[in-house]
């Protein structure tokens, strides 16, 4: 059976595109999402190469004489028994530490928090959600009621409780934020599994004699990934925000670590005297959260199968 039309149909859409090319073509159309992606990439690069710009020792060492140095000013500093002139791009904080340097190192902390907590929550939550959705019955009841309980406790309060009980440390902070991020993934995954598992191709796989594990891993999970990816992106923003909030309250990263929440907390007493100490860390938080949310929106549109073609 020859069919010229079909060939021309394929020819008219150009080369056959891979799934990723197709995704990228649609993502690119959303200019704001592309901007968001650029900002996030910038922060990630900052996080990776933080030590190239400023050493950690330098940005945690007090230079009391330069306290509250204005942006774009130079001042003499003492570092490793040397006296050098230092150019403060974004000024100095109340201990005379370079704000730009602290923001760059803060980016590293924030990115670690964001990615590790969400990676944890995403894996645990998706697995639980998939199991609940696929098997139903008692398993589902137990999993879903547990997440309901978790959801009933305000996130910050729960994190507070964990940190208060286990003591304020980086690991405990990650644990607290990670756990509070789980319920969103459980619910989302369960809902998508419920819609996917009633499709005929799942029944087809059963009729072929496929085992449960294969059905879940090969047919159900891949078809549920789109909303999970979107949720993960938005979740990263959420968890960075939670971490800064906890640090602001003094329950997260402990000083002198250059965490953005810490920086805000330190700076708030001097808001009228030296507003730049508050402004720049605030801007850093804002842009990163905004960027992740823009990416999330862009992904949601680009991954929506209903918009195919």
């Amino acid at each position: 059976m020859d069919n010229n039309n079909f060939i021309s149909q394929i020819a008219s859409t150009g080369k056959r595109k891979t799934a990723f090319e197709e995704f990228w073509r649609r993502y690119r159309k959303n200019k704001l999402a592309v901007a968001g992606l650029l900002i996030v990439v910038l922060y990630i690069l900052m996080a990776i190469f933080a030590d190239v710009f400023f050493s950690y020792d330098f940005i945690t060492q007090n230079q009391i004489s330069n306290a509250f140095a204005e942006p774009f000013t130079s001042a003499e500093i003492e570092y490793k028994d040397n006296f050098t002139n230092h150019f403060y791009v974004l000024g100095a904080d109340n201990f005379g530490r370079d704000i730009l340097g602290r923001i760059i190192h803060g980016a590293r902390i924030s990115m670690i928090i964001g990615f590790s907590t969400i990676a944890f929550a995403c894996v645990v939550g998706s697995a639980l959600g998939a199991i609940a959705g696929y098997y139903g019955g008692r398993v589902e009841s137990i999993i879903m009621r547990s997440t309901d309980i978790l959801l009933a406790i305000p996130n910050i309060l729960f994190a507070l409780a964990i940190v208060a009980a286990l003591g304020p440390s980086f690991q405990n902070l990650l644990l607290a934020i990670g756990i509070t991020s789980i319920p969103a993934f459980v619910r989302l995954m369960r809902a998508s599994v419920l819609t996917v598992k009633n499709q005929e191709f799942i029944e087809a796989a059963k009729a072929l004699g496929a085992r449960d594990f294969r059905i879940i891993a090969r047919h159900i999970m891949p078809n549920c990934m789109a909303p999970i990816i979107v949720q993960a992106t938005l979740g990263i923003a959420q968890s960075i925000l939670s971490a800064t909030s906890l640090s602001f309250l003094g329950l997260g990263i402990q000083p002198p670590s250059p965490e953005w929440g810490n920086m805000l907390s330190d700076a708030r007493s001097y808001i009228s005297y030296a507003p730049h100490t508050l402004l720049f860390p605030g801007l850093a938080i804002m842009t990163v959260i905004l960027a992740y949310n823009l990416i999330g929106d862009g992904l949601r549109d680009a991954l929506d199968p209903k918009l195919k073609r």
Partner: peptide, 19 residues
């Protein structure tokens, strides 16, 4: 009838049912 519906985004020369 052999084959299938033509692609509606293409204007053929000649008769549309020809193939």
């Amino acid at each position: 009838i052999r084959g299938m519906m033509p692609d509606p985004s293409i204007v053929p020369s000649g008769c549309i049912f020809k193939p």
